[in-house]
Computed example of a mutant assay.
Amino acid sequence: MTVECIDPPGLPVPGIYRQMAVARGSRTVYLAGQVARTAEGEPVGAGDLAAQAEQALLNVATALEAVGGTFDDVAKLVLYVVDWGPDKLPALGEGVGRAAARLGRDLTRPITLLPVAALGEPDLLIEVDATAVLD
Rank of each mutant, 00 (worst) to 15 (best):
M1W: 11
M1C: 09
M1T: 14
T2S: 15
T2N: 15
V3N: 02
E4V: 09
D7E: 00
D7I: 00
G10I: 06
L11N: 07
R18Y: 02
M20I: 02
R24F: 12
G25M: 05
G25C: 05
G25D: 02
V29I: 12
Y30R: 10
Y30T: 12
L31E: 05
L31A: 04
A32T: 14
A32P: 04
Q34F: 07
Q34S: 09
V35S: 01
A36P: 02
A36K: 03
T38Q: 07
E42N: 12
D48P: 06
L49S: 06
A50F: 00
A51T: 08
A53L: 08
A53M: 13
E54T: 13
E54S: 05
Q55Y: 05
L57M: 13
N59S: 13
V60Q: 08
V60R: 10
V60L: 11
L64K: 02
E65Y: 10
V67F: 12
F71E: 07
F71Q: 09
D72A: 15
V74M: 08
L77A: 08
V78C: 04
L79P: 01
Y80T: 07
V82T: 13
G85V: 00
P86W: 13
L89Y: 11
P90V: 09
L92D: 01
G93L: 12
G93F: 03
G93A: 12
E94Y: 06
G95M: 00
R98L: 06
A99K: 01
A100N: 10
A101I: 02
G104K: 10
G104T: 07
L107C: 06
T108V: 15
I111K: 10
L114Q: 14
L114G: 02
P115I: 09
G120Q: 08
G120S: 14
E121P: 04
P122K: 03
I126F: 05
D129Q: 12
D129A: 06
D129C: 10
L134I: 11
D135I: 00
